[in-house]
Every structure is written in C-alpha cells, then in structure tokens.
C-alpha cells in the first residue's frame, strides 16, 4: 500500500522542480516576453516571430507559436477590387459557426478577375474577436476567394471597432498568400489551374461536340430539305 497522501508530495516535488528549474535552465522557460521582440536568447523550438514590425514570415506550417490565423480575401492583381475573387455568394456567411462574417451583395455586376461580369461584396466584415479560426469558410468557398491569413500583433486599443476587419483590410494579393504559405498556395494555384484546364477542355470538347452535332444536323437538314430552302432560312 502506498503512503497515504504521498501523491500530493510527489506532485509538489514536481512543481518545486519546475519552480527552481525555471530560474536555472533556459530551455525550461519556453515562453517569451510577448510584447518585446524576441532576442537571440530564445530557444529554437519556440517558434518564429517577425524580427521587425510588418515583416512577413515565410512559414511552411500554417501555425506558428505566435501568429493568429484569421481569414482574408484574395485578389489576383494590383488593383484589389478589379480582380477580387469573391462573388458575394454568401456561402461562407451561412456556414460560419460563430457567425462572425457579414456580407452585403453589390447591386450591379462588375467585371471580375476572369473578365466576366459578376456580383462583388459591397461589404465584407469579419469580427475576428468572434472568429474561432475553424477554416470552414475556406473549405466551403467554391471560388478559392477566402483563405487563412497568419498575423502577429493584432492587439488594438479600440474596444469595439478595432477587431472588426472591413473588406479593404481583408483584401490581400495572391502573392502575399504565396509568401506566407508557399506550399499551400502553390497547391491551391495548381488545383485551380487544373480545374480551369479541365473546364476548358470540357468546354472545348462540348463545343466540338456541339459543332459536330450542328454540322451533322445541318447535313441532315440539308439532305432532308433540299427542296424547301425557305424553311432553312427561317431556322437560321
């Protein structure tokens, strides 16, 4: 039979070891003075942190120890609103579990990145104080318009507005995305290209088929209606 209450002393020994050890062994103190930039004294496994304000980290993992991941909107070109991928379909707004996305659809259509006239979000707000970084919006988006950002230093003195990100705050270029999550972005772009290619091939095939069909039909019609040219003219 073990000593009565011995478990308590065992636990207390563990905490005492931690307490004393944290003063002598640097690798025990895995935390960092979060508001100051890390010095070189920081142990290696603590995670990366931008050395200067505004610097973007190249990071192949999605999560570092210090970054916070909230969604952003992608665009393809230099003018964000001209090449925005989002078409304000509002699927993400419906799917968001904490309901932190608010979208207002535009009234008129506008040419988007692909050159097609599309709706665009007149308003696209995400309350990142509510967002729980679940990435469901990323998964449901059929246009690859919303992906996860990786940010440091989000704190703000503004109690109500500071953490409500507006559309223009959320818009980030695809290059930026490639910078912060290179592998993921490359994979995504590859998939988009493949899908596009597949779509185009399909379209081509469909067009080919349609053309063939039309030709056949025309041939047949021509054969059938050699005597009635008026009707064929009408059909055209």
């Amino acid at each position: 039979m073990s000593l009565l209450g011995g478990g308590i002393f065992k636990g207390m020994a563990v905490t005492l070891r931690n307490f004393v050890g944290s003063y002598f062994y640097k690798d025990r103190l895995t935390t960092n003075d979060y508001s100051w930039r890390p010095s070189d004294k920081l142990p290696q496994h603590a995670g990366e942190y931008p050395k200067e304000e505004g610097e973007q980290l190249r990071d192949t993992t999605t999560v570092t120890n210090y970054s916070r991941n909230f969604p952003m909107l992608l665009h393809d070109g230099s003018e964000p609103m001209d090449t925005i991928r989002c078409v304000a379909c509002q699927i993400c707004e419906r799917e968001c579990p904490p309901q932190c996305i608010y979208i207002e659809k535009s009234t008129e259509k506008k040419e988007n990145a692909g050159g097609k006239p599309q709706f665009y979000p007149a308003k696209f707000d995400i309350d990142v104080s509510v967002c729980m970084s679940c990435q469901i919006c990323v998964e449901v988006c059929p246009f690859d318009a919303i992906v996860m950002n990786s940010q440091f230093e989000l704190s703000t003195p503004d109690r109500f507005g500071g953490l409500l990100l507006r559309r223009d705050d959320l818009l980030k270029s695809n290059d930026y995305y490639h910078n912060i999550h290179p592998e993921e972005a490359a994979a995504r772009d590859k998939r988009i290209a493949e899908e596009k290619a597949a779509k185009e091939a399909k379209k081509k095939a469909a067009a080919e088929a349609a053309r063939k069909k039309a030709e056949e039909k025309a041939k047949a019609d021509a054969e059938a209606s050699e005597g009635t040219p008026d009707i064929q003219e009408d059909a055209e």
Partner: peptide, 11 residues
C-alpha cells in the same frame, strides 16, 4: 508562473 515555466508579470 514559475511553476508553469512562465515568467509572470514583469512589465
């Protein structure tokens, strides 16, 4: 904080 290998208030 020290028990949990943190630093605790130091600012």
């Amino acid at each position: 904080a020290r028990i949990q290998n943190r630093i605790g208030p130091n600012k």
